[in-house]
């Protein structure tokens, strides 16, 4: 479990931007679902620096927002980040632009789930865990990570 201790990769792979992809309406969809304005983000990185789970993520939260602005739907809904976010609202509290980033993550999870991408199923939990975790953990995980 210790191989993942370092910081998230400093560089994201290059992306190819085309007018069709950027204008396909993904950003608007996220705006509507989350009630936030993606264009408000000016990439200060405060969300990523405060995120307790940033080191577990493949794409940092501020980069997720940038990718939403650029309409990179596939990169996002196939990322680990949206499933690693624990909805702790640290980023939401600290965003100087007032974006509820947790709500954006929820919207992204919902878009992925609507595609039928379940991240966590009842078969993936061990019986001992299921018998001991307090119920908010069980209800929470299936509400957030499964359809």
């Amino acid at each position: 479990m210790s191989e993942n201790m370092g910081l998230a990769p400093p560089k994201s792979p290059p992306i190819l931007l085309t007018r069709e992809v950027v204008n396909a309406g993904f950003k608007q969809q996220v705006n509507e679902l989350s009630g936030q304005h993606m264009d408000a983000c000016y990439q200060c990185g405060n969300c990523s620096s405060g995120c307790p789970l940033a080191q577990e993520m493949d794409i940092l939260p501020n980069r997720i927002i940038r990718l939403v602005q650029l309409g990179q739907r596939d990169d996002i809904i196939n990322s680990e980040t949206i499933w690693i976010c624990a909805s702790c609202f640290q980023c939401t509290v600290r965003c100087p632009r007032g974006i509820d980033i947790q709500a954006v993550m929820d919207a992204l999870r919902q878009i992925a789930l609507d595609e039928g991408i379940d991240h966590f199923g009842p078969d993936q939990i061990s019986p001992e865990l299921a018998a001991s975790v307090p119920q908010p953990g069980l209800v929470g995980v299936y509400r957030k990570l499964a359809t």
Partner: peptide, 11 residues
């Protein structure tokens, strides 16, 4: 700081 919340189940 968050303790991991429901990630305790999934991760």
């Amino acid at each position: 700081e968050c303790c991991g919340s429901y990630l305790s189940v999934s991760n």
